[in-house]
């Protein structure tokens, strides 16, 4: 029963997929193909991401994370959050589990949000790709707007969210 509840979303999407394949064959098959492709992409990114977060959780002491990215880390914490997020590879959903470990280790909330923002949009591999396809004016302008943008979004979110909600999110990260 519990298992059924956990896989509710997956089962629902699977049913829709089957319906699609029956009634809109071409689109359904295409959807299945893309899902297969995404699974491959996931298989490439997810195992190292989770192993890295396991290692991070075990080897890096809380005090170190607090010192570099915690409440009093200031500018250093912000820069580190941007660099770590930008060095990432893979889709945004890979960032969330790492963010959870960050919270567990006492990383400041805004820095967690900056990390998520950087992962979403200033990833270095993607930036290089953007540079070659869309040109340096486009890519550099976007980068220059995005860096202050993600910091701003992080601070707006953190001041908008009630303190209890933030505490709840941190507590939730402990059990994940």
């Amino acid at each position: 029963m519990n298992l059924l509840k956990r896989y509710k979303l997956f089962l629902m999407t699977a049913v829709i997929m089957v319906i699609m394949i029956i009634f809109a064959r071409d689109t359904g098959i295409k959807a299945l193909n893309i899902t297969g492709y995404s699974l491959k992409e996931m298989a490439l990114v997810i195992p190292p991401v989770f192993i890295l977060l396991g290692l991070l959780d075990i080897w890096v002491p809380r005090e170190t994370m607090v010192k570099y990215m915690g409440e009093k880390s200031g500018l250093k914490g912000i820069i580190l959050a941007i660099l770590l997020g930008s060095a990432a590879a893979g889709p945004l959903y890979g960032a969330f589990p790492i963010a959870a470990v960050f919270m567990k280790k006492g990383v400041k909330f805004t820095n967690v949000l900056i990390f998520i923002g950087a992962w979403s949009t200033t990833k270095i591999p993607m930036f290089l790709f953007e540079l070659s396809s869309l040109g340096s004016t486009f890519a550099l302008t976007r980068l220059c707007i995005d860096i202050p943008g993600i910091i701003l979004i992080a601070y707006i979110l953190s001041s908008y969210l009630p303190e209890e909600e933030v505490k709840k999110i941190y507590k939730n990260a402990e059990i994940l």
Partner: peptide, 9 residues
Amino acid sequence: LGVIMLVGM
């Protein structure tokens, strides 16, 4: 798994 199916569709 659910999200990946959604992405496909």
